[in-house]
């Protein structure tokens, strides 16, 4: 008997406008547990707004959001985190005034207990792969851009999530660090961590993604494997540029 894969996150007819600007229009988005999904699209396509609605920063005008089968449409952000959702921001938001150790200590008290063993293993792997010392007393403000990005990913992993949403985790990184980030995220995903990434860097997407969703003008424009998306004529026109 083949088990149906569980749905990690699902939206039904999600809509959101800011004034006259449509940020999400009838978005039906579904990610299965254990999947590595990348989201691409031109600036203003609604990727970050969709992330903001998924984790509870923004409220949808209409539609529904489910996390691991639970309706979280009206659930506050911190309660969604307790359901196993982790998020890193487009602009790094580690606590710059605090040390690396303190940054990693803060999420500990809110960590989910049911996922502890596997979550701890993921955290230790990521810290090692990113070269971060969890006892480092250096202030986060003194870290390099790459280290700050990695520190924020590690902070989210401290909470032992089942699903991580990463908004441009490799933004501003050189190609070597981008691929290093992709490699770590791929390993974490191989342990069952559902991963959804907004990323502009196509090298990252080609390397890491199992499925790609293309957003355009607040709508899901296309969805498929990396090869399908790259070959998609209209996606090439609106986003990738014609060869």
């Amino acid at each position: 008997m083949v088990m149906e894969p569980t749905v990690a996150i699902e939206t039904l007819s999600l809509n959101k406008t800011f004034g006259g600007v449509v940020a999400a229009s009838n978005v039906n988005f579904k990610v299965l547990s254990g999947e590595f999904r990348c989201m691409i699209g031109p600036n203003g396509a609604g990727k970050s707004t969709l992330f903001a609605m998924l984790c509870g920063i923004e409220t949808a005008d209409s539609g529904q959001i489910f996390v691991f089968g639970q309706d979280v449409t009206h659930t506050q952000a911190f309660k969604r985190v307790r359901l196993g959702v982790g998020l890193t921001f487009q602009t790094n938001r580690a606590f710059h005034a605090l040390s690396v150790r303190e940054n990693l200590a803060i999420p500990q008290a809110s960590a989910r207990l049911e996922n502890k063993e596997v979550g701890q293993a993921r955290l230790e792997f990521a810290l090692d792969a990113f070269g971060l010392d969890p006892n480092d007393e250096i202030k986060a403000a003194e870290l390099s851009h790459n280290q700050l990005q990695w520190l924020e990913i590690a902070m989210v992993l401290v909470g032992y999530p089942n699903l991580i949403l990463l908004d441009e985790p490799a933004a501003g990184m050189a190609s070597e660090e981008t691929l290093r980030t992709a490699k770590v995220l791929k390993h974490l995903n191989s342990t069952g961590l559902t991963t959804v990434v907004v990323e502009h860097d196509m090298a990252f997407v080609k390397d890491a993604a199992q499925t790609v969703t293309v957003l355009h003008q607040g709508k899901i424009f296309a969805e498929g494997s990396v090869a399908d998306i790259i070959a998609h004529e209209d996606v090439r026109r609106i986003y990738l540029g014609r060869a």
Binding site: I57, A77, F78, G86, F95, A97, L98, P107, S110, A111
Partner: peptide, 16 residues
């Protein structure tokens, strides 16, 4: 202190 530094980041680490 984390709340002082960044309320949203702290909330998205699971704190009310």
């Amino acid at each position: 202190v984390a709340i002082r530094e960044d309320e949203l980041r702290t909330e998205l680490l699971g704190y009310d």
